[in-house]
């Protein structure tokens, strides 16, 4: 069983603003889901390496160059942002 305090803590980590009612609901639901997931503890994994990725990965290099098309795309992306100024995204101040 996960506590209400823990739900609040995770919600904050995940940057989700929840109402009191939601916290109660998710406490119930996440507890049930986590109980089910406890099943994983039955498996002996002491000698097993964790899986990293479905395919063998290798580094792929390319030139660090701006492309004409990407500049076009940047304009479109910024256009869709809720707040912008002179081609930049605007946010609330980060440093006080």
């Amino acid at each position: 069983m996960i506590s209400k305090q823990e739900v609040k803590h995770i919600a904050k980590l995940a940057r989700l603003g929840l109402t009191g009612k939601e916290i109660e609901k998710f406490q119930r639901e996440l507890s049930r889901i986590l109980d089910y997931i406890e099943k994983l503890k039955e498996v002996d994994v002491s000698k097993v390496e964790p899986y990293i990725h479905p395919i063998k990965m290798e580094n792929i290099m390319r030139k660090d160059q701006a492309k004409e098309k990407e500049i076009e795309m940047k304009k479109k992306l910024i256009e869709m942002a809720p707040e912008k100024k002179k081609g930049y995204l605007k946010t609330k101040s980060i440093l006080k």
């Binding site: 739900v7 940057r15 989700l16 603003g17 929840l18 109402t19 996440l30 889901i33 986590l34």
Partner: peptide
């Protein structure tokens, strides 16, 4: 506020499960 209002229940559940 954006994420609390913008996401539906299932998405919130999974984000929280993952964050946990």
């Amino acid at each position: 506020k954006t994420r609390g209002n913008g996401f539906g229940d299932e998405v919130k559940r999974r984000i929280m499960l993952g964050a946990y």
